[in-house]
């Protein structure tokens, strides 16, 4: 079997395969729901209703999408330069810690100063967390896949230590959680009365900025060149090591904004479970978007919709909630295959 590039894929080809992938995902979800004793024909309806069937559901999906936009952007930026950042989870928590450190009364600043300061500090922390593995990669040739993965555990344990030590809420009834943020440290809601905060708007702005950086600046050009062919980039005089380090700073900073927006926007305090794997899901988001920063917004909302919808379906139909993750993984695997098949033709023999 061989793959042959399709010169000018038709629209039917570009849309047909992803449509099949979606159908397969729904089919598998329905099949599993049936195995669990639910009505398989009701599955799709329940998912759609849970993801976008009401104002509440739609806002829930957008809230879920917000951290995914940031982690998706973080991964897209890094992967474009072939820096395999699998550690967005750690960077997210690093950002969240800074928010909890500065936003619980340490700085008595007005919101207009405090929020940017917290966002900046969060980005700095996230950037530094990824800088470690990036330096190891550039200086010692240590594979960053493994180091960023391992750092996720280190940082999470570090957060756990803080939450049982210096950051612990004295009024928290012994739970490992930080005190509540002061009102000035909270991201306001986008529209009064609707449960959607400014983090979402910030995500959209970040996507545009990253798009501008990637397509309109020298750094963006260098990042793409390093990603396409490191040797050629080096030959062309691009300082490859420095570009990778800059990419790491940007990527880590973006992932940390997910932590900032979750704590300051949604949760209001830091706990160990602010992220159910947003860092890892960011990889799904970025891959489905073909690493395009603007596409990340779309795929983040899609992935959030699949998750929120499947989660709601599982509760309505009495199916174990892990079905949401199964459907997410299926959507990822079938979609990357579909994208490949829409651009390559399979030749047998």
């Amino acid at each position: 079997m061989r793959l042959e590039p399709v010169a000018n894929p038709s629209l039917a080809r570009l849309l047909g395969f992803p449509a099949v992938a979606l159908a397969v995902t729904v089919l598998i979800g329905s099949g599993l729901a049936m195995v669990a004793g639910a009505d398989p024909f009701a599955t799709l309806g329940l998912i759609l209703r849970g993801a976008a069937g009401s104002q509440f559901a739609a806002l829930e999906t957008l809230n879920r999408a917000t951290p995914l936009i940031f982690t998706g952007l973080a991964v897209a930026v890094a992967f474009r330069a072939r820096l395999w950042n699998i550690g967005a989870e750690a960077q997210l928590y690093a950002g969240a810690v800074m928010v909890a450190l500065l936003g619980t009364g340490a700085l008595a600043w007005p919101a207009g100063l405090l929020l940017p300061a917290m966002a900046g500090a969060a980005m700095l922390a996230g950037a530094l967390v990824l800088l470690g593995p990036a330096v190891l990669k550039v200086r010692f040739g240590v594979d960053e896949v493994v180091t960023t993965l391992l750092f996720n555990f280190v940082v999470l344990l570090f957060v756990s230590m803080l939450l049982e030590g210096p950051l612990k809420d004295p009024m928290g009834m012994g739970w490992p959680q930080s005190p509540r943020l002061v009102p000035e440290a909270r991201l306001p809601r986008l529209v009064e009365g609707l449960r959607l905060h400014w983090g979402f708007a910030l995500g959209l702005i970040a996507a545009v900025i990253v798009w501008v950086i990637q397509t309109r600046t020298t750094l963006g050009y260098e990042m793409r060149a390093v990603g396409l062919n490191r040797q050629a980039a080096e030959f062309a005089g691009i300082p490859v090591g420095r570009v990778i380090l800059k990419t790491a700073l940007l990527s880590g900073g973006l992932a940390a904004l997910a932590g900032f927006s979750e704590v300051a926007g949604l949760k209001g305090n830091l706990t160990l479970d602010i992220s159910p794997g947003f860092g890892y899901t960011g990889i799904i988001v970025a891959m489905l978007a073909l690493l395009n920063p603007l596409g990340v917004v779309v795929t983040a909302i899609f992935v959030a919709g699949v998750f929120v919808g499947a989660d709601s379906m599982s509760r309505a139909a009495g199916v174990p909630t892990y079905i949401a993750n199964i459907m997410l993984a299926t959507a990822l695997l079938t979609m990357v295959l579909a994208i490949q098949l829409s651009r390559f033709r399979v030749k047998w023999g």
Binding site: N325, I326, A329
Partner: peptide, 17 residues
Amino acid sequence: HVVGLGITLLATAVAYF
């Protein structure tokens, strides 16, 4: 990278489910 992480997500979720 992507397939591997996808399999990890899938296999874990299937086992828990």
